[in-house]
Amino acid sequence: MSEPEPLQAITRYLQKQHVLSVCGGSPVWCANCFYVFDAENVAFWLMTEEKTRHGSQFVRDPQVAGTINGQPKSVMLIKGVQYTGQVSLLTGAAEEKARRAYIKRFPVAAAASAPLWEIAVSELKMVDNALGFGKKLSWRRE
């Protein structure tokens, strides 16, 4: 069996998940958010108000990091992703595209007016013990 191309393997995993942690600011604060992964641009789209603690920190300091992971009981099934990136508020056509995708994935969001944000990912690192204990796949934006 050939080795999976890192970004393709990471993308498959990210498209199956739906909650990420996002951490940033000073003092550092973390939040969990529902997300849609934009594979074409290697970015996460999430919805949150600017008045939330993490939303107001996004405005002050757009550098963020976080994780996406499941909760397997077996160590051999552990899979998870760590990421870093820059977060920004979406506007115009980009916001409309992201909102359509977000509502398609999370229909309850159609009733929400909260803004959408994009985390432009600069680095992804995935641990996938199903490929071998401690196996890591990495991707970096050039």
Rank of each mutant, 00 (worst) to 15 (best):
Lys51Gln: 15
Glu3Ser: 05
Lys104Arg: 13
Ala112Asp: 12
Phe106Tyr: 05
Thr11Val: 04
Ala130Phe: 02
Arg60Asn: 15
Met47Glu: 15
Asn69Val: 12
Ala110Leu: 01
Thr67Trp: 00
Arg53Ala: 14
Ser88Tyr: 03
Glu5Phe: 04
Lys125Phe: 06
Arg12Thr: 09
Gly134Arg: 05
Thr52Ala: 12
Pro115Ser: 11
Ile78Arg: 11
Leu89Gln: 05
Arg53Glu: 14
Val28Glu: 15
Glu49Gln: 14
Lys136Asp: 04
Leu116Met: 11
Met126Phe: 09
Arg141Gln: 13
Gly132Pro: 13
Ala94Val: 05
Gly85Ser: 09
Leu14Val: 09
Gln15Gly: 07
Phe44Met: 02
Tyr35Asp: 01
Leu124His: 10
Arg100Asn: 11
Glu50Ala: 07
Phe37Asn: 02
Tyr35Leu: 09
Lys136Gln: 14
Phe133Arg: 08
Glu49Phe: 04
Cys23Ser: 14
Arg53Met: 14
Glu40Phe: 00
Lys16His: 10
Tyr13Leu: 02
Phe58Gln: 00
Cys23Phe: 00
Arg140Lys: 15
Arg105Gly: 05
Asn129Gly: 08
His18Pro: 00
Lys16Ser: 13
Ala94Ser: 08
Arg60Thr: 12
Met47Ala: 12
Gly80Trp: 04
Asp61Ser: 15
Phe37His: 05
Gln86Trp: 02
Gln71Trp: 14
Gly85Met: 01
Val64Glu: 05
Val127Thr: 13
Cys23Asn: 04
Glu123Gly: 04
Ala98Gly: 10
Gln63Tyr: 06
Val28Pro: 10
Leu89Phe: 07
Asn129Cys: 06
Gly80Ile: 04
Ser138Trp: 02
Ile119Tyr: 09
Val36Phe: 01
Trp139Glu: 11
Thr48Asp: 03
Asn32Asp: 10
Ala98Phe: 06
Ala101His: 07
Val59Ser: 09
Gly132Ile: 11
Leu89Glu: 04
Thr11Asn: 10
Glu49Arg: 08
Gln63Ile: 06
Ala110Trp: 06
Ala109Gly: 13
Ser113Arg: 14
Thr84Pro: 03
Ala112Gly: 07
Tyr102His: 03
Trp117Thr: 02
Ser56Lys: 07
Leu90Phe: 00
Arg141Ala: 15
Lys104His: 11
Val42Ser: 09
Ser88Lys: 06
Asn129Asp: 05
Arg140Asp: 03
Phe106Leu: 02
Asp61Arg: 10
Pro4Gln: 10
Ile68Leu: 06
Thr84Glu: 13
Met47Asn: 12
Asp128Phe: 08
Val75Thr: 09
Leu46Val: 10
Met1Asp: 07
Ser2Tyr: 04
Gln82Gly: 09
Gln63Cys: 04
Val75Gln: 12
Arg105Gln: 10
Gly92Ala: 12
Ser122Cys: 07
Gly70Asn: 09
Trp29Pro: 00
Lys16Ala: 13
Ala120Glu: 14
Trp117Arg: 01
Asn41Ser: 11
Val36Leu: 00
Pro107Ala: 11
Phe58Lys: 01
Asn32Val: 02
Glu50Trp: 09
Glu95Trp: 09
Leu137Lys: 02
Gln8Ser: 12
Thr11Gln: 05
Pro107Glu: 03
